[in-house]
Design a protein around this nucleic acid. Structure first.
Length: 441
RNA sequence: GCCGCUAUCGUCUAGGGGACUAGGACGCCGCCCUCUCACGGCGGAAACCGGGGUUCGAAUCCCCGUAGCGGUACCA
C-alpha cells in the first residue's frame, strides 16, 4: 500500500487537512505501507515557502511522519511537459483559445447540462478531450460507485497557455508516477476524480483505489473559518491542546470503532483504523468535546511530563509543585497559568472577591489563621490542614468562611487550587506575607 | 441553473430487515462528594428529515420530495 498526503501550501494546515493527514498516516502505519508527502504548489500565486514550512511544522507537532517527500509538484515540471506532449500527440488533448465566457456561451446554446467541447487550434490552453458518450465511474471505498456521465463534463483545461499544468492533470500524473495505490482525500475532490480518471485512462494507466472523506464544518455547519475560533493546527497548539488528544479527537470525526470507544490511543488507532468504517456524512468541529478529551489526556500524564510540557508552553520554569496541585483542575495547557500563576506572580486583583470575602468577619478569620500558621511545624500538608480546621472549630464558623478569605489573601481571587496545598507550595514565609498584606488597612 | 454527495439526540456516533422500550460519548439539567473551581460518582431530558413503496416485519432496502454541503476556474 502506498498512500499520500498532498496539501497545497496556500495557508496554514487546517483541521480538515490535519485529519486527512492523520487518516492517511493511520492507514499506512496500519498496513505497513508507505506514506508520501507531496506539496501541491502548482498555484504559484498562492503557494509560499512560509506556508510549506508551516504545514511541515504542524505535521511535526502532530507527530505524523512520512516515508517519502516532501516533493514539490512544480519540481516535476519536465515530466508533466512530457506527458502533456504525449496526450497532445495522441489526440487525447488539444489546444484551445476558448475562454470562460466561451464556455458559458456554449452552455447557453447547448443546455446547462451539456459540457463544453472545443475545437483544436494552433495555440492556447490545453484541454483534455472528453468523449461525448459513456461515463466514468468512481469506485470509492467509502461511498460506493458514483457515475459521472461524460456529456455533463466540460473538456477540462489541464495546462495554461504558457504551458504550466493544472491541478487535475498534475495530481493524476504524480499519483501515477509515485505508484499511489490508495487516494484518500476530502470529499470536495469527488467531482474532480472523473477528470483525473480520464487523464489516467488517456495514459492507459490503472486507477488507484479512492476514498473520499466527509468534510469537516464549523459548529454552525458552515465552512470552517477564523470566525469559529481555532481552526488551524497552529491555533489549536497555541490554545493548549495536546497532540495526542487532537489525534484522538480528529480520528473520531468521521470514523468510529465498532464498539464506539471514545478514548482511544494512537497505537490503538493504528491497530483498529480501517477505511471501511469511515462515515459518509460531514462532521462538525466541536471544541467542547476536544476540551474534555484533552483534559482526560492531561490527567493521564505524569506530573513530570505535564510539568515539562507546561514549562515549554509557558516559557517558565520551576513549575512542578504548582502543577502537582493544579492538574485536576485544568483541561488545556492554557488553563494552567490563569489558575496557578498567582503562586509565581503574586495575587491577582479581583475587587469583587475582596469585597465578598475580606469583610470584617473575614479579616477576623484571617487574623486567626495567621496566628495558627505561625505555630505550624512542620509546615506541611497535614499540620497545615489541622491548623486551619482548628481555626474553623474555634471560631464556630463554616469552613468556607475561613478558607475563602485565606484564598483571596493568597491568590487575590475566589478560585485557586486546594487551600492547604496552596499554602504549603507558597511556604510559611510567603503565605504570612500575603496574609499580612491582605490584613493591612 | 447544472452535476454530485449526504441525512439517527444540540454535537460526534453505534446500528447494516426482527436482538430497538434506538446504545455510547461531549454538552445540558438534577443529586452526591466538597474549602473555591474542577475532578469523580449516580440519575435525567434529548434523535431515526417528510412522503410513498418492498416485506409478515424497516432507523436499516428502493423511489420521490426537502434540506445541508461540495463541484461547476487557464485555484487546489
Amino acid at each position: 500500500m502506498r498512500v499520500r498526503f498532498a496539501p497545497s501550501p496556500t495557508g496554514a494546515l487546517h483541521i480538515g487537512g490535519a485529519r486527512t493527514a492523520l487518516y492517511n498516516w493511520l492507514l499506512a502505519r496500519h498496513a505497513g505501507g508507505t506514506l508520501v508527502l507531496r506539496i501541491e504548489d502548482t498555484d504559484r500565486e498562492r503557494s509560499t515557502p512560509e506556508n510549506v514550512e508551516q504545514i511541515l511544522d504542524a505535521l511535526r507537532w502532530l507527530d505524523l511522519d512520512y516515508d517519502e517527500g516532501p516533493i514539490s509538484q512544480v519540481s516535476r515540471t519536465e515530466r508533466h511537459q512530457e506527458i502533456l506532449e504525449q496526450l497532445l500527440a495522441g489526440g487525447h488533448a488539444y489546444r484551445s483559445s476558448a475562454t470562460a465566457d466561451d464556455v458559458r456561451a456554449f452552455k447557453d446554446e447547448h443546455g446547462a447540462e451539456r459540457g463544453f467541447r472545443g475545437d483544436a487550434e494552433e495555440s492556447g490552453a490545453v484541454r483534455l478531450r472528453v468523449p461525448d458518450d459513456g461515463a466514468t465511474v468512481v469506485h470509492d471505498v467509502i461511498r460506493g460507485e458514483t457515475t459521472f456521465r461524460h456529456t455533463h463534463l466540460d473538456d477540462p483545461v489541464i495546462a495554461r497557455a504558457d504551458g504550466s499544468v493544472l491541478y487535475n492533470f498534475a495530481v493524476a500524473v504524480d499519483d501515477l508516477d509515485a505508484g499511489i495505490t490508495h487516494v484518500v482525500r476530502g470529499e470536495d475532490h469527488l467531482s474532480n476524480t472523473p477528470k483525473q480518471l480520464l487523464v489516467l485512462e488517456a495514459l492507459g494507466a490503472q486507477q488507484p483505489i479512492y476514498a473520499h472523506l466527509p468534510l469537516l464544518h464549523g459548529p454552525d455547519g458552515k465552512k470552517l473559518s477564523k470566525r469559529h475560533g481555532a481552526a488551524s493546527v497552529q491555533e489549536l497548539r497555541e490554545a493548549g491542546y495536546l497532540p495526542e488528544a487532537l489525534r484522538n479527537y480528529l480520528a473520531l470525526l468521521g470514523w468510529g470503532s465498532d464498539d464506539d470507544q471514545t478514548i482511544i490511543s494512537t497505537d490503538e488507532l493504528v491497530e483498529r483504523f480501517s477505511l471501511e468504517r469511515v462515515s459518509r456524512n460531514p462532521a462538525r468541529f466541536d471544541e467542547q468535546k476536544l476540551r474534555w478529551l484533552n483534559g482526560r489526556y492531561l490527567r493521564e500524564l505524569g506530573v513530570d511530563d505535564l510539568t515539562a510540557r507546561l514549562e515549554q508552553y509557558t516559557g517558565r520554569s520551576g513549575l512542578r509543585a504548582a502543577v502537582e496541585i493544579s492538574r485536576e483542575k485544568v483541561q488545556t495547557l492554557a488553563d494552567f497559568w490563569p489558575l496557578a500563576g498567582f503562586i509565581f506572580d503574586g495575587p491577582a486583583d479581583d475587587p469583587a472577591a475582596r469585597e465578598k470575602w475580606l469583610t470584617p468577619d473575614g479579616m477576623t478569620a484571617l487574623q486567626a489563621v495567621r496566628s495558627a500558621l505561625e505555630e505550624v511545624d512542620p509546615f506541611e500538608l497535614g499540620p497545615v490542614q489541622e491548623a486551619l480546621e482548628g481555626v474553623v472549630r474555634d471560631l464556630g464558623a463554616k469552613p468556607k468562611q475561613v478558607f475563602q478569605p485565606v484564598r483571596v489573601a493568597l491568590a487575590g481571587r475566589a478560585v485557586s487550587p486546594g487551600i492547604f496545598e496552596t499554602l504549603v507550595v507558597l511556604g510559611r514565609e510567603e503565605s504570612l506575607a500575603r496574609i499580612d498584606r491582605a490584613l493591612a488597612p
